[in-house]
Design a protein around this nucleic acid. Sequence first.
DNA 1: CGACGGGACGC
DNA 2: CGACGGGACGC
Length: 493
Amino acid sequence: MATNHQQAMDSGPISGRVDVDNPPFSRIFIVCSKRHTSEDMKIAFEHFGGIEDVWVVKDKLTKENRGVCYIKFTKASSAARACEEMDGKVVGGDSKPIKVMIAQSKVSGSKTDFQDDTALTRLFVICPKDYSEDNLRQKFQDFGEIESVQIVRDHATHENKGYGYVKFRKSSAAAIALENCDKALKAVWAEPKSAKIARNAAAAAAALHSTLIPHNPFLETNNFVPSAVQAPMNVGMNVPVSIPGVVDFYSAQNPTAAVAESITTSHTPTRLFVKVLPSVTAEQLSRLFDIIPGMQMCDLKRNFSTGESKGFAYVTYNSVGSAIYAKEKLNGFEYPPGSKLVVKYAEDPPGVRSNGIGQGTEAPFQVQSYGSKSSLTGNSYAVDSAGVYTSAALPAPAPLADMNSEVASRLFIVCQPAPPPETALKDVFSRFGNLIDVWMMKERNFGYAKFASKESADAAIEGLHGHEVLGMRLKVMHADPPKSEASRKRPRT
DNA sequence: CGACGGGACGC
DNA sequence: CGACGGGACGC
């Protein structure tokens, strides 16, 4: 009965004997002499690691040796070391030194490879959001001399965006690191800094319509005016460059999700503070924030006498959910391109004793007689056992499981009519403990949650199935096993 | 200057 | 019913 995972890695090369581009940069190109044989090369290079193929190139017609050779290693680190140690050396009694370099990949005919001569020392890594540069460095320092580590951060908030770069002094060290580092960091070869804009802009443009303009929360329940869809274009945002949330794929290793943090502190969760370039007009800003359904007021502060913008505004929504969503989608959004908005929850205005449910704010679920706690701050929307945004009775915040944890149970989640923001999902699912990750499929109303404990997963089903989160009803059930394996029977009708 | 072959049937 | 994700750097 036990599980035998004995699926032979059959398939192998797509066509031909050896897949020369797998793993990337595991093949070297050698300029040698016409007298060198493949046996010479094998002897000279085999001690760098497993060799899959040695090929001395010959002229098709004359069969004459052309003085070049390819060697495919099993590992990129072997190829890297071969380059570093054999370039310029003499081999097999020939007087001319050989040249050794990483071979161009066979596909992508020309220079499409991100391999200029400087490359192959830098890795792109997924970096937990609570990591510092030093934390990241420690994950790699055993593999070789590190030249630099860079965690990419939000410019306004300085928040770790969840990924970074590690640059080694030697290519072989980078390769060794790539092959042996913590798999959760998902290291891959970094592209050179040059080629980045195209893909980025394309992805952001697509994301603008798919995520900013929601088929998502709140539009069914609020007055969503289709004309607002054009707002970004009307106000001159033709080229969105960066949309937060699109890259917000990585969860903070954080006991409480952003929703809880933001709302548990002392501010009104339906009211946002926005920092924006003074050149942006009140009307432009209003159009932008009105894309999120439920905006009630956009109050750009201006100099009383001159009318010039003071560079900040308050935006109020008619529900907590809308405000959360607006903050999630627009904080860091480049508007105008090149200048990122800063969107936070607004502090309570002085003198306003915001006690409980502000009049006019129709929170999806209201705090239930929880008042006494917040005498200090006038905290009105404690998101804990009272459950201001979900009908479920949530346990106290609990830490996430380590992302390397083995998956003990996977849940299938359906949200109707649409998924709540990811932050909210993370919060509610994490409350049951041992949550590894939860995500929704892009553009869809279903998703999955992975737990490191079966008990926690079962508790999440028990606690969340049939409940609402920010107005969205959840179905939470055990997921079928991932579809990848065990479906290769006979394809009969 | 110095860049892309060979071999192949198994449910 | 609804079934399998996610990644790029301030010139």
